[in-house]
Design a protein around this nucleic acid. Structure first.
Lengths: 191, 191
DNA sequence: TACGGTGATGAGACCAAGTCCCATCACTTA
DNA sequence: TAAGTGATGGGACTTGGTCTCATCACCGTA
């Protein structure tokens, strides 16, 4: 077995997630992950840039969905409406299967510095992508940064909420962004 | 030479910065940095957790200054006023010497993924620290997150501006945060 | 049926990051 | 002068990650 079995990438992800759960991230060698998936270290690094990335596959797709939605939004829409559209656009990737191993994935990430680091970089990537797409629409630099940052905040809170409650991510994201905006209003109104 | 010369840590930082500038981060081995500083690899790792950290020394101090300022702020101050105090409190670390090699440091970080990753983690660290300190004051979760995130944004923009213009960082930070708040107002007012 | 092409994999050498352990040295204090 | 302390040197070792080349399954075509 092994060679030419289909879905090598998925097998690697599952093996990694299992092993990280059983022994912890640091105590699991890439060779071991590959072995459990019926593959070798070489093949692992053909599918993932590094050991961390096995937990973050497909996040580039998210950034593309976001920027696509921002570029395609109606011209008269305000920055935060556009950001909302960006979050909603990512909903197609939030499948039941993804929700199933979401908590395990989050737990592993939280347990390790390298992984929190990678997660932070991904979020910065989202923020930069949205900022650029907003600037492309003519939104001034600072407004674009702020709107994008608020969007990432809502995305993160929304993701955690979605893991707990399930349902349609688009709905959850919309509601969460609304609450963030309300918080912003309370902040500026208070002084 | 080497052994028992003072300021081993500072020598390592300077050697690293120079070598990264000359040959790039990836092409510079830790052993080489240590050698130029008149030390060995072992000693390098005694002073820095890893190769990246040589560029981020002292950022823990910043987080402590921020949380200290937030805890010590007057009880009636609003969240964003408190955040302003946090940024102002970090000004003591922004010396001329730090400004001197700031651009070189930023250029190196921008050139490499690992380093951008570490920088992102540091910023998340600031945000978490400020969020927690705000919650400690009774600020609700979401308001705290938003205020902290805006503070980090202002900190970053302010830092870049300070590298360009010089002067007192406290002043720059105050002004930058003011502009961020104005941008927030324009965002929410527009729709 | 045979053949060559293609793409994914295996295998192993290799380098550098990071850990560990122990010896060594300079300096301090009794 | 001797013991103690803290920073350093040195080297073995594991693992992440790169690179190169051989190998195998499948596909199309003659």
């Amino acid at each position: 077995m092994g060679r030419w079995e289909p879905d090598a990438r998925e097998r690697l992800v599952r093996a990694a997630l299992d092993l990280f759960g059983e022994q912890g991230y640091e105590n699991t060698a890439v060779a071991q992950i590959a072995e459990r998936a019926g593959l070798t270290k070489s093949t692992f690094f053909r599918h993932f840039r590094d050991k961390r990335e096995v937990l973050f596959g497909g996040q580039d797709v998210l950034a593309e969905l976001m920027t696509g939605a921002i570029s395609g939004a109606p011209a008269q829409a305000g920055p935060l409406e556009v950001v909302e559209a960006a979050l909603v656009a990512t909903a197609v990737t939030f499948t039941d299967e993804r929700r199933a191993h979401g908590p395990q994935r989050l737990a592993v990430i939280a347990s390790n510095d390298e992984l929190r680091e990678r997660a932070a970089l991904k979020m910065v990537g989202f923020a930069v992508a949205m900022t650029d797409a907003l600037k492309q629409r003519g939104v001034p630099e600072l407004e674009a940064s702020v709107a994008a940052e608020l969007g990432v905040l809502a995305f993160n809170h929304g993701y955690e909420r979605w893991l707990g409650t399930g349902g349609d991510f688009a709905e959850v994201a919309r509601r969460t962004l609304g609450e963030v905006r309300a918080a912003v209003g309370r902040l500026e109104g208070a002084e």
